[in-house]
Structures are given as C-alpha cells and as structure tokens.
C-alpha cells in the first residue's frame, strides 16, 4: 500500500521536472558532432574532392552497400568516377569513416533520410558530395602523399626532399 502511494507521489513529482522528450519534428534534438548519421563525401581545404577511390570504405562495409569506380583526372588526382551508397542497406556503423585514409567519407549528425520509395535511398556521388571539409578541417591528403598532382610536384609534399638527381654520384 505504502509503495503504491510512494510511486504515485514520485510520478506526480515528475510533472515539475524538466522534460526530456523533444517535440520532434517541431523541435530538433541536439546531436553530438560524432553522431553517426548521413554519410557524405567531403572536400579538401582547396576545394578538390577528398575521395581518391581507394575502395577501403567498400571493403570495410559489413553490408557491402558501397560501390565505386576509381578514376584518374588529367591533373593526376584520383577520384571516384561513380560513388554509390545504398542507404536501404546501410547500418550506420561508421566503419567506412574509420577505414578512410583521406577523411573523405564522414558520417554527419543528420538522420532525416526516410523515404516512401526504397529506390530513393540509393545515393549517387552528386547526392553524397558536400561542399565542406566536414569534421576534419585542414587535412589535405595529397600534401602528405608521394604522388605528384597538378600544383604539387614531386618533393613538394610535407616532409619531402626535392627529387634526387639520378645522374649525380655526389653523396
């Protein structure tokens, strides 16, 4: 009897507590920055695509919902010719982001992706590529990689010496 009354009292007291329920969709929940939501392809500080088409995200994906085709631009940069994520299969595990060596693929704090037609959950590159560096501002893969691209020749990356003169025998 006493416990019943106590429970009713506690419930009554909750009427005066701060409400934990968000009145979604009128009110949006504040999502943490590392929330694993919608997947996007981000850009370099200089505006180029970060994705180099290395296929590691696709290999890491436990539901195999990423497919892409690597290509090389005339300026030497690699990029995905197409990049497709089937969000109707995606489980938002974030393995792709962990596998990505260039910080290109990132999971963003956004989950509002529901569709009536499942086919609309297939995102192509133009749906995925955003005009932002996402969570990792300042990182530029080609500045640390050894490949030469337009605007960054051999020996111009960080921690690189100028190219060796192979015709010299000097130490």
């Amino acid at each position: 009897m006493f416990s019943l009354l106590r429970s009713m009292w506690l419930v009554f007291l909750h009427m005066f507590h701060k409400r934990e329920t968000y009145q979604y969709p009128e009110e949006k929940a504040p999502l943490p920055a590392r929330w694993r939501g919608r997947i996007a392809l981000t850009r370099d500080p200089d505006g180029g695509e970060r994705c180099v088409g290395c296929y590691l995200c696709a290999a890491a994906c436990p539901v195999d919902c990423i497919s892409l085709q690597a290509a090389e631009a005339p300026d030497g940069r690699r990029y995905p010719g197409f990049f497709r994520i089937n969000f109707s299969r995606c489980i938002f595990c974030g393995f792709c982001e962990e596998a990505c060596p260039t910080y290109a693929i990132q999971l963003l704090p956004d989950f509002e992706m529901a569709e009536y037609d499942r086919q609309n959950l297939v995102y192509e590159k133009e749906d995925l590529l955003i005009n932002s560096q996402g969570k990792y501002p300042g990182y530029n893969y080609y500045r640390v990689a050894g490949m030469a691209i337009a605007g960054k020749d051999k020996g111009e990356a960080r921690h690189e010496e100028p190219p060796v003169n192979v015709r010299s025998l000097l130490p």
Binding site: C61, V63, D64, C65, S67, L68, I85, Q119, V122
Partner: peptide
C-alpha cells in the same frame, strides 16, 4: 571473401 559492394553495385538499376 573481401569482395565489396554487393548490395550497391546494381542498386542504381533496382534497389532489390
């Protein structure tokens, strides 16, 4: 065994 993209390769044609 690491073959990737099985559920996305043909998803542009048909998601099933």
């Amino acid at each position: 065994h690491r073959y990737s993209g099985r559920t996305a390769m043909q998803a542009n044609v048909n998601v099933s």
